[in-house]
Design a protein around this nucleic acid. Structure first.
Lengths: 130, 130
DNA sequence: TCTTGCCTTGACGCCAGCGACAAGGTTTAA
DNA sequence: TTAAACCTTGTCGCTGGCGTCAAGGCAAGA
């Protein structure tokens, strides 16, 4: 399988695949003319990468999952290193959710306050600055 | 008040203040030697900007709040344009929280699955790649 | 033979909010 | 006089995950 086919089947671009390879995530043999040749298994690897990136992982976070797949597992998440990442990410997400909750409250408070003070002086339509 | 003093009192850098000015958020007179001279009121403006940025606003989102302060209000959020931004941001935050909730569930599911399949084949310690 | 459509390796652009450095002018204190 | 501590504009760097040319090689059908 050449890079174009893999890209299409994985729903990405060739640029993306080369980028992943440059960062050590995707592997390819080379045919005599220098073309990248991929095995079927790489399709799963690429899909794993994509789904994890979609969830907010960085490329570095994805590495253990790829290694785990390469080790022959049906899922990239079952290996110890992956589990560590999963736990860390889960903690990050929780922290972020908390923070967003606080932000949400602030915004709500501002809105409430604003509605209680409608009648104040406000900038007129659109005069050029100054 | 010169730029260094404003920076210190606002807890930012001079670079940041020039950046805000370049983007039309902060205003300054110029003394004869070309130095920026700020009025006291700019301190509140800068603080408003900072708190909003901390909450996840972009510079463009902040503009109405600054204009609102300049119009003489005690709070930057009481003007109609600001309220629009507040509502929009609130919606964005809500959407983001929802998404993070879904992500959280996925991560949890992965973890649960991983724990149920501990015994699978995993990559050994740290061999150099290949 | 020529075109078409693959593939290759660079290398710059993007977004956002600055940090950091360069090269210079001004004012004050020692 | 000279150093110290301000200030000025300008420009590049940074982070991440690519998009998007650019310039060229290879394979195959008309």
């Amino acid at each position: 399988m050449l890079i174009g086919e893999l890209a299409e089947r994985a729903g990405t671009s060739t640029r993306t695949l080369r980028y992943y390879e440059a960062h050590g995530l995707v592997q390819a043999q080379r045919s005599t003319n220098g073309y990248r040749v991929y095995e079927e298994a790489e399709l799963r690897v690429v899909r794993e990468i994509r789904t994890l990136l979609d969830v907010g992982f960085g490329l570095d976070d994805v590495r253990p999952f790829v290694a785990c797949l390469r080790a022959g597992n049906s899922s990239g998440g079952v290996c110890p290193d992956s589990v560590l990442v999963l736990r860390r990410k889960l903690a990050e997400v929780d922290a972020y959710i908390d923070r967003l909750g606080a932000v949400r409250q602030q915004l709500n408070a501002q809105l409430t306050h604003a509605i209680a003070h409608r009648e104040e002086t406000c900038p007129r339509k659109r005069q050029s600055a100054l």
